[in-house]
Amino acid sequence: MKTFNDKGIKIEMVQSQIETNGLLTLLKVSVQPNFENKKHIHSNLTETFKVTDGTIKLRVGEGVICLEQGEAFSVNAGIPHHFINDTDKNVSFLVCVMPGSSEYEDLILNGGDI
């Protein structure tokens, strides 16, 4: 399993776009307390975040969505977004990217933003 681990974030590849015939890329993400990634945009990918442990905030466009364990939210292509763990506990979530993308996978596993 491919993994990236650095500066408060750990990302594990669960399913690659090759394994799903390009349908999706599935990642398991764990972030430490007070971690925030950079605001960014994916021009042709939709990301769905599903929290598996803890609480995470998604800043999507001009709004903020708070997701707790078991809740999910999709960010459509072209929408600026980033996530924030402003709690004092680790947070884990799944990220499903559609369609799957080898470029996205390479970027993420080399330290790029989800």
Rank of each mutant, 00 (worst) to 15 (best):
E19T: 04
F83T: 01
N44V: 12
D86V: 04
E103T: 06
V51I: 10
H81N: 07
S43W: 11
K2A: 11
G111K: 08
C96M: 13
V60E: 08
C96I: 13
T46R: 05
C66E: 10
E68N: 09
D106R: 13
K50A: 07
E47N: 08
S43I: 13
N110R: 12
V91A: 01
D106C: 09
F35I: 10
N37L: 10
I108T: 03
Y104K: 05
S102I: 15
I65L: 01
G63V: 07
C96S: 08
N90Y: 12
G54T: 05
F93Q: 00
N76L: 14
D88W: 06
K39A: 15
I114K: 00
G111A: 09
K89M: 11
S43H: 10
I9G: 06
I79Q: 10
Y104F: 15
K10C: 12
L94A: 02
K7R: 13
I79C: 08
N76K: 09
K39Y: 08
R59L: 05
C66K: 11
K57L: 07
K7F: 10
V91R: 00
E105Q: 13
V97S: 02
L109K: 11
N21S: 14
N37H: 07
C66M: 07
I9P: 01
D113C: 06
I65S: 03
E105N: 09
D113I: 14
I11A: 05
K50M: 14
N21K: 13
I9V: 15
G78W: 14
D6L: 14
N5E: 14
G63L: 04
T55A: 01
K10R: 13
K7E: 11
